[in-house]
Every structure is written in C-alpha cells, then in structure tokens.
Deep mutational scan, measured.
Amino acid sequence: FHVTIHVGDITFHIHGVSEEEVKKLEELVRRGADWREIKKTIEEIEK
C-alpha cells in the first residue's frame, strides 16, 4: 500500500506498507497520536 498521513502541517508519505501496518497507523491517527509517535512508527515500518 501507499499511505499518506497528514498531521497538522506535516505530511508523511510511506510506500510498501502492509495491510497490518496500515491498520496500526490508522489506529494511531484515530487516537490522536502526535506526529513524533507517528514518525517513530513509520521509521519502524520502513526498516
């Protein structure tokens, strides 16, 4: 999957994300995680 996440003024683009990881990111966004937490999760996914 290709994912784009907008957190305030920050936009993250992630490529090659599995469905499971998409759900993890959706959950973070849904519970209102700040951009640092989302960035950390994205960095883990990209490894």
Results as ranks from 00 to 15, higher is better:
1 F>W: 07
2 H>T: 15
2 H>K: 08
2 H>D: 15
2 H>M: 10
2 H>G: 06
3 V>F: 13
3 V>L: 12
3 V>E: 01
4 T>P: 01
4 T>K: 04
4 T>F: 10
4 T>D: 06
4 T>E: 07
5 I>E: 00
5 I>N: 00
5 I>W: 02
5 I>K: 00
6 H>V: 13
6 H>A: 08
6 H>R: 13
6 H>Y: 08
6 H>S: 11
7 V>E: 02
7 V>G: 02
7 V>L: 12
7 V>T: 05
7 V>Y: 15
7 V>M: 11
7 V>P: 01
8 G>M: 05
8 G>H: 03
8 G>Q: 06
9 D>T: 14
10 I>L: 11
10 I>S: 07
10 I>T: 09
10 I>C: 13
10 I>W: 15
10 I>P: 00
11 T>G: 01
11 T>V: 12
11 T>E: 03
11 T>S: 05
11 T>L: 04
11 T>H: 11
11 T>M: 05
12 F>G: 00
12 F>P: 00
13 H>I: 11
13 H>Y: 12
13 H>S: 06
13 H>V: 11
13 H>W: 06
13 H>T: 11
14 I>N: 00
14 I>W: 05
14 I>A: 03
14 I>F: 08
14 I>L: 14
14 I>V: 12
14 I>S: 01
14 I>Y: 04
15 H>N: 05
15 H>S: 07
15 H>L: 06
15 H>Q: 07
16 G>R: 05
16 G>S: 10
16 G>C: 09
17 V>L: 14
17 V>I: 13
17 V>W: 10
17 V>S: 03
18 S>K: 10
18 S>Q: 06
18 S>T: 15
18 S>D: 05
18 S>M: 07
19 E>A: 13
19 E>R: 06
19 E>F: 14
19 E>S: 09
19 E>P: 08
19 E>D: 08
19 E>T: 07
20 E>I: 13
20 E>N: 10
20 E>W: 15
20 E>C: 05
20 E>G: 08
21 E>D: 15
21 E>Q: 14
22 V>K: 09
22 V>E: 02
22 V>R: 11
22 V>P: 00
22 V>Q: 06
22 V>G: 05
23 K>G: 07
23 K>N: 09
24 K>R: 13
24 K>I: 14
24 K>C: 05
25 L>R: 00
25 L>G: 00
25 L>W: 02
26 E>Q: 14
26 E>V: 13
26 E>D: 10
26 E>I: 14
26 E>G: 08
26 E>W: 15
26 E>A: 13
26 E>P: 00
26 E>T: 15
27 E>S: 12
27 E>V: 10
27 E>N: 10
27 E>M: 14
27 E>F: 14
28 L>V: 06
28 L>A: 04
28 L>N: 01
28 L>C: 02
28 L>I: 05
29 V>D: 01
29 V>K: 05
29 V>W: 15
29 V>Q: 06
29 V>P: 00
30 R>T: 08
30 R>Q: 11
30 R>S: 10
30 R>P: 00
30 R>D: 07
31 R>Q: 09
31 R>Y: 06
31 R>N: 09
32 G>H: 07
32 G>W: 11
32 G>A: 06
32 G>F: 09
32 G>P: 02
32 G>S: 05
33 A>Y: 02
33 A>M: 03
33 A>S: 06
33 A>W: 01
33 A>I: 04
33 A>V: 06
34 D>L: 05
34 D>R: 11
34 D>G: 13
35 W>M: 09
35 W>H: 04
35 W>K: 03
35 W>V: 08
36 R>P: 08
36 R>Y: 13
36 R>Q: 13
36 R>I: 10
37 E>H: 03
37 E>D: 10
37 E>M: 04
37 E>A: 06
37 E>F: 03
37 E>C: 06
38 I>P: 00
38 I>V: 07
38 I>G: 00
38 I>A: 01
39 K>P: 00
39 K>V: 08
39 K>R: 11
39 K>S: 09
39 K>Q: 14
39 K>C: 07
40 K>V: 09
40 K>Y: 11
40 K>G: 07
40 K>A: 13
40 K>W: 13
40 K>P: 02
41 T>Q: 09
41 T>L: 15
41 T>I: 14
41 T>W: 15
41 T>D: 01
41 T>K: 08
42 I>D: 00
42 I>L: 12
42 I>F: 04
43 E>V: 08
43 E>W: 10
43 E>A: 10
43 E>Y: 09
43 E>H: 08
43 E>P: 01
43 E>C: 11
43 E>M: 09
44 E>A: 09
44 E>M: 09
44 E>I: 06
44 E>D: 11
44 E>Y: 06
44 E>P: 01
44 E>F: 06
44 E>G: 09
45 I>H: 03
45 I>V: 04
45 I>N: 02
46 E>P: 05
46 E>Q: 13
46 E>T: 14
46 E>R: 09
46 E>K: 09
46 E>W: 14
47 K>Y: 10
47 K>V: 10
47 K>A: 13
